[in-house]
C-alpha cells in the first residue's frame, strides 16, 4: 500500500472504529472475517506444523465442484447446502491425495497439485454447465471464486461462528492427541493412538475452517488464511498452545483490519486486502520476533562478534603477544 493510502487510512481511523461498532454491514463483515481468522488461524497452526501448509490451498480449490454439484443435486442455493457440498468435495480431494501417496510412488506435492487443479477444473466444468442450462438461475455461485464479504448477513456470521466454535471445541477436546500426532506420528502410533483416524479428523477440521471462509474470502485466497497467521505465530513462541492462540489472534486481526480497510476505500476487495494484512503480519514477525526474528538475529550476531573481538584483545594483552588484526582478516 502506498503512503498516500496509508495517510488516508490514518485520517479516517476514528470513523472506521465508529463504523465497526455501529455500521451493520461493516460490523457483520468484520465479525465474519474475525471468525474466519480465528478458526483458520488456530487450525492452520497444525497444518503448518505438520508440513501440510499447501493442503489448505488444495482443499479450497478442490471445494469448487462441491458447490456446483450440491446445487445440481438439491436445486437449492442456500449457503448451508452449497458449503456442505464444498466441504465434502474438499474432504474427498484430501483423502484422494493421501490415498495416492500411500498407494503409489507419486509424491505428495504432485498428488496435491494434481488433485487441486483437477478438482478445480471439474468444478469449473460443472459451474459453466449449470450456467448454460436454460432453467438455471445460477447467480451467486461464482462468488465463491473470489469471495464477496459484503454480502454476508448476520445470520450467516452466526452460523459460521457456530460451525467454527464446534470445530474449535473438537480441537480442544482432542488437544493432546492432535499435539502428539503433529510432532511425533510414529510414537503416537506405537503407543496405540488411532493415528489414521486422528489424521483424517484433524484434516476434516481444516476443511471446515476453509469452507467457513469460502464465501467471504473466496477459493483462491483462503489458503493464505490457513498458512500465514500460523507462520507468523510460529516466530514468537516455541509452545504449541501459545502458537495456536497467537495464530488465531493474528488471523482475527488481519480479518478485521482487512475488512475495515476495504469497507472505507472504494475498489478494495475484501479477500485480497485481508491477505495483504496477514502478509504484513508475517513480515513483521519474521523481522521483529524475539530470538528468531531476522533483526534480532542480526543484532545477536553483531554482539557475538563484539564479544569475540574483546575476548581476543584481552587475551592478546594478557600474553603480551602480537595483536591479531581481526578487523582486517574478517
Amino acid at each position: 500500500m502506498d503512503t498516500v493510502t496509508s495517510i488516508a487510512v490514518l485520517s479516517v481511523l476514528p470513523d472506521i472504529l465508529h463504523d465497526l461498532i455501529f455500521d451493520y454491514t461493516l460490523r457483520t463483515v468484520a465479525l465474519g472475517a474475525a471468525v474466519i481468522g480465528i478458526v483458520a488461524g488456530a487450525l492452520g497452526a497444525f497444518a503448518v506444523l505438520r508440513r501440510q501448509s499447501l493442503v489448505g490451498d488444495a482443499m479450497s480449490h478442490a471445494a469448487l465442484p462441491g458447490i456446483g454439484i450440491a446445487y445440481l443435486v438439491t436445486g437449492r442455493k442456500e449457503n448451508l447446502v452449497l458449503l456442505t457440498g464444498a466441504a465434502i468435495a474438499g474432504w474427498l480431494a484430501t483423502l484422494a491425495v493421501l490415498g495416492i501417496v500411500r498407494r503409489s510412488r507419486v509424491k505428495f506435492d504432485s498428488a496435491l497439485g494434481l488433485m487441486l487443479s483437477v478438482f478445480f477444473g471439474f468444478g469449473l466444468m460443472v459451474l459453466t454447465y449449470i450456467q448454460r442450462r436454460p432453467d438455471a438461475s445460477q447467480a451467486g455461485l461464482d462468488k465463491f471464486l473470489f469471495g464477496q464479504a459484503a454480502t454476508l448477513v448476520q445470520g450467516e456470521v452466526r452460523n459460521m461462528a457456530i460451525a467454527g466454535g464446534l470445530a474449535l471445541a473438537v480441537l480442544l477436546f482432542l488437544w493432546k492427541s492432535f499435539k502428539l500426532i503433529s510432532f511425533d506420528m510414529d510414537f503416537a502410533s506405537s503407543i496405540g493412538y488411532p493415528v489414521r483416524v486422528l489424521d483424517v479428523l484433524l484434516t476434516t477440521l481444516v476443511v471446515v475452517a476453509i469452507v467457513l471462509g469460502l464465501q467471504a474470502v473466496g477459493v483462491v485466497l483462503m489458503s493464505a488464511m490457513i498458512v500465514a497467521p500460523a507462520a507468523a505465530a510460529r516466530q514468537w513462541t516455541n509452545r504449541l498452545g501459545v502458537m495456536v492462540l497467537l495464530s488465531a489472534f493474528f488471523g482475527a486481526l488481519a480479518g478485521v483490519t482487512g475488512a475495515a480497510l476495504s469497507a472505507t476505500q472504494r475498489h478494495l476487495p475484501t479477500g485480497p486486502t485481508i491477505v495483504v494484512c496477514v502478509s504484513a503480519i508475517v513480515l513483521i514477525s519474521l523481522l521483529l520476533a524475539p530470538n528468531r526474528g531476522l533483526v534480532w538475529a542480526w543484532f545477536a550476531r553483531r554482539r557475538k562478534g563484539e564479544e569475540l573481538r574483546r575476548t581476543l584483545a584481552a587475551a592478546d594483552a594478557a600474553h603480551g603477544g602480537p595483536r591479531i588484526l581481526i578487523e582486517e582478516n574478517s
Binding site: 499447501l54 483462491v220 493464505a224 500465514a228 507462520a231 485480497p272 495483504v276 502478509s279
Partner: peptide, 11 residues
Amino acid sequence: IGIVFPLLFSI
C-alpha cells in the same frame, strides 16, 4: 510457498 503466492496474487 503458501505465504508468497497469495500475497502477489492479492496485490
